[in-house]
Write a protein that binds this DNA or RNA. Structure first.
Lengths: 216, 216
DNA sequence: GTCTATAGCCTGATAGAC
DNA sequence: GTCTATCAGGCTATAGAC
């Protein structure tokens, strides 16, 4: 996934055996990080190329050179995330989610980026619409599996059985867990003192798992 | 809350005893509905006064005449809601929430309006920030009370007891319920087939109430 | 009370310099 | 490969016509 193509600066220095100090990374990546920051704090629609350009002391067209369009820049920003967030498989993933909620409270920027953009993407013909739809589909699947993994084996079959609408109880629990995390982010961004994202996430996961275990 | 000031058209007709047919309502309200629609489908930042004006066959300035600024128009749109959504008190409110989720699936416009705007409001200095912060505060309180109301009396004290951070278990459950509803809306807007908002909302409410009952 | 004309700024993107 | 100059169009809001 590495869009991180090194420039000449990353070559070993010719004047010695020491590794090059990487004074300046690729301009492209510099723009990417700046844009992520701007989209997070202002939303995509409300951020202009001029805003981003100004932070880097170049002109808007300078930004466009590297990405071609504002939409392409957004796509690149969203894909940036995949590198930095490795999710474990199986039932440990649920613990990972709680840890993520905890970490999110320390990184308001990233939290804001996804909370704001995911909702914004639900508007007509938004460029990030497909990206978020796919992301939610994958997440529901993965977290649904993780929920099944945590269940007692004899409860597992029932939770994995689709109803007439094709949805499984485990899948619905997954949708709920994702929804709680996203919804809490908005509440927390507006009023950090009012909610404890990690604690509430954990409570909901436990409550849902307990419910899937009690059914019989 | 009635901003609905009737115009001359709503006077009883002078030519007979029959009530006036109200052919045309206040222009202001006409604009309000159109704006709500536009904000819902495009987001606030991505909607121009020209968009709204075009739907009414007037100029952007014609819109501004009635509200003074685009921000004021947004505020008016948000306050419109209060008229049409009476929430019952007590534990019946939880049933009302499930019913609301069900109704939301039939009104994509309104659903989108609040899902998109609430997240968008979490960006820097957004004009609707205070409105949504207050709204969430009130909702957490009301739904927290409703949760307490549904509990068995002997579980109630524990659920209403604040921890060291000042938050009560019932309040956290309330935050979770609101979060689930909001988060589900985004998933549903992006992929209506993938989630059943009402069913999942009900599941989460039941699971959380059960958990608050089981604690001892 | 209702709205248009117009101003003045800001937008994303193309064409082309180095 | 990196970026600036420039453009045509869109933006909100003021001033004032009816």
């Amino acid at each position: 996934m590495s869009e991180t193509t090194p420039t000449a600066d990353t070559r070993p220095a010719e004047d010695g055996g020491a590794p090059a100090p990487r004074r300046r990374v690729n301009r492209r990546e510099q723009i990417l990080r700046t844009a992520a920051d701007a989209f997070a704090t202002q939303g995509f629609n409300n951020t202009s190329l001029a805003d981003i350009a100004a932070m880097l002391d170049i002109t808007p067209a300078g930004v466009l050179h590297h990405f071609g369009s504002k939409t392409a820049l957004l796509t690149a920003v969203l894909e940036l995330r995949d590198d930095t967030d490795p999710a474990p498989e199986g039932s440990r993933m649920l613990d990972h989610l709680v840890a993520t909620a905890e970490r999110n409270a320390e990184r308001p920027g990233t939290t804001q980026l996804y909370a704001v953009l995911s909702a914004e993407s639900a508007t007509d013909r938004h460029p990030a619409q497909e990206w978020f739809r796919d992301r939610f589909t994958v997440l529901r699947q993965e977290i649904g599996d993780a929920v099944l993994d945590r269940l007692d084996p004899r409860d597992r079959a029932a939770a994995a059985t689709p109803g007439p609408d094709g949805r499984t109880p485990a899948g619905e629990a997954a949708a709920a867990i994702i929804a709680v995390m996203d919804g809490l982010q908005v509440q927390w961004l507006l009023d950090p003192e009012a909610v404890d994202m990690a604690a509430v996430t954990e409570t909901v996961i436990d409550a849902l798992v307990a419910r899937l275990s009690d059914q019989g």
